[in-house]
Design a protein around this nucleic acid. Structure first.
Lengths: 210, 210, 210, 210
DNA sequence: AATGAATGAGCCTTCATTCAT
DNA sequence: CATGAATGAAGGCTCATTCAT
């Protein structure tokens, strides 16, 4: 990797931090440049505008997370074995999301804004609507279910699976500080919570099928 | 209600809309004034600053929501009867939150920002830490449980009960538009989801006790 | 004096204090109203504008000070007896100026500003140019001197008599605080200074004449 | 001098003019920018705030004037020879002050304001209290006098020497216009005034010593 | 690829002044 | 006389963006 690319990466890293900390509107190009140790004008050498940085962060995130999801599926995710599913998910996907908590923060904050804009958060469960990849399409087609059943599944997955996990990631630092819990203890509690709610739901579904 | 107070209320209403739509940093005082049909300078007659408006919105929300929660408890909430609990919750509390989706949006967005600031979102489950009311203290004291058990309960309540509900409220419009669902259909799905996850967890806890 | 007039006087008093403390431009109508314990809008019942207050303060000051100066002259000021002059001056005039230090401050500050505006400070030695009173004219006409001699006298009077005295009045509080002197000690020093400079000059003039 | 510094200097020059003409509070950043032929925002590239400009003007002035005063002393100022003193003073110091009449105006105007703020005008005679330079300390230590005598000297120097000179500088333009005198004629009169008052006092002091 | 300087547009806030009662 | 509410016009300051080198 040449020196040029390194500057660009430092800018992206810095931007994701500042966006996450101040929100997109509250973030200042000065601070992004400062944290990236580059001249403010250099940012405009690599990016057309502040918004272009955001868009590139999104793209990178959805490209990578889609890849990971695919790998997860390829290696047997969404299988019958709930235990195996969970192990795979944690190995392949969860770590990446945790490492990208800043992007998730931005995603959530920006998704709540406005009316006309799209809602990037939905891409996490609306892979079909995603323009980034067509490889994913086969996944859901494997299962034949009614439209109503499908809606229920997606809604349940999003609001009781994805969102709890996302909010856990973006709030865990604040939670630990506020409630004076160790990160380990919180993780233990959160696992407990998911096990007794969302994962229980999946287990029950499996049970019924047989 | 005299004319004076009406202007102030119009400003608060307008501010909550604009904050929710653009985020706090992205909101412009011009737009708040415009939507409230008042002169921009009048805002500063009633409020010291932009931030003071936000603080007053928070105060009003937490005052009212705490009152409602208390009423919910007084009328038998948190009782053994899960059905009754749900009915009461929906009658007393859920409607208020749904009607204050804008404040919830602001709450979520601002709670993700920064490091040093407090996290208003936590006040929804950390009533003890709330400076607003001391009447609430008796609620949790009724049940004798270990600290670890209490932590698990709070974490579960927050991440798999409160946050799904909050995200449902703040995202339902966007969800309906994006996935072309009616609000009614989404509500049906969401109820289904909660029933099979979070409420199931409560039901199981009740079952075990006996 | 009816209640109405009292409000007006309180406004003028308050204005002179605030103008002196913050300067004319830096003074805010709010603070003037506050210090006068009247509603801000009431000021506009008595005065056309902020500037009108200033003008009225000037008028009042020059009216009163001219009256005092006339009385000073009528009772024998500008006489041959330097001792008597000084005694009279202190009795009739100095006290008034000291009591109106705020106006003097305003006078000095505003006199330094701008180019086009007049210089109210000069009215202290340019009684002829004053529009306020015609009684004064006789004073200087009593003495026949050359134009050049008159200019020297006025310049000397202003820069080594009036201005030291004016600056003494407007700075004495600050001087005492800064140099940790008692007001009494400063006055003693200042009297010494004037005696050995400006008053010495008058004494010498008297001496020469004979 | 590079182009960058030139803009900054133009801003400082412009600011001193506008501050002097309108007073600090009355000065508008727009006008400062306009007179300096720079974009208004550029001012904030070089200075943190309006007040920071004022502070930098003060610093520059006191740094330079202290240097000049030191040079004056090193070359024999404050010596026994009154004539020589005056010649040196005019050559080394007076010119600088006359050239910086705008700063002096600001100094006087701001020194009269407020209660809590310091009084920059006093720095002209309170070199010991000045944080800018320690080289000056030796000057007054050379002469052994009583505290009371020292106070008298400082008071006399300030109110009958410095202030007449300062007021002469800051008012001479207005004086000439108001009284229709040439600058030359006024200077002649003012020299006459100082000779027969303040300088006479110094001469007498010298005389007594012998 | 990098940077110090510069800028136009806009934002929050202030303030003298006026209105309505 | 008196006042709470309202307003137009700035004013200080910020910020994303661009220029020149």
């Amino acid at each position: 990797m040449d020196k040029s690319e390194e500057s660009k990466i430092r800018i992206l890293d810095s931007a994701s931090k500042v966006f996450a900390e101040k929100g997109y509107s509250g973030a200042r190009m000065d601070e992004i440049a400062g944290k990236a140790h580059v001249n403010k004008a250099l940012i405009y050498y690599y990016f057309k505008s502040k918004e272009a940085i955001l868009k590139e962060l999104y793209q990178k995130f959805f490209r990578e997370s889609t890849d990971l999801l695919l790998r997860f599926v390829e290696r047997g995710g969404f299988s019958e074995d709930a235990e195996e599913n969970k192990r795979l998910f944690e190995a392949e996907y969860a770590g990446y999301l945790e490492a990208n908590g800043d992007i998730l923060k931005i995603l959530v904050m920006e998704s709540l804004k406005g009316d006309e804009k799209d809602t990037p958060l939905f891409r996490l469960v609306d892979l079909e609507g995603s323009e980034h990849d067509t490889r994913i399409q086969g996944i859901e087609e494997r299962v034949k279910i009614s439209e109503k059943e499908r809606q229920r599944m997606v809604v349940t997955e999003f609001f009781t699976g994805v969102m709890p996990f996302v909010t856990y990631i973006v709030l865990k630092d604040k939670w630990c500080r506020h409630f004076k819990m160790s990160e380990r203890a919180l993780k233990e509690c959160f696992d407990y919570a998911m096990q007794h709610t969302h994962e229980q739901y999946h287990a029950n579904r499996k049970g019924k099928k047989r």
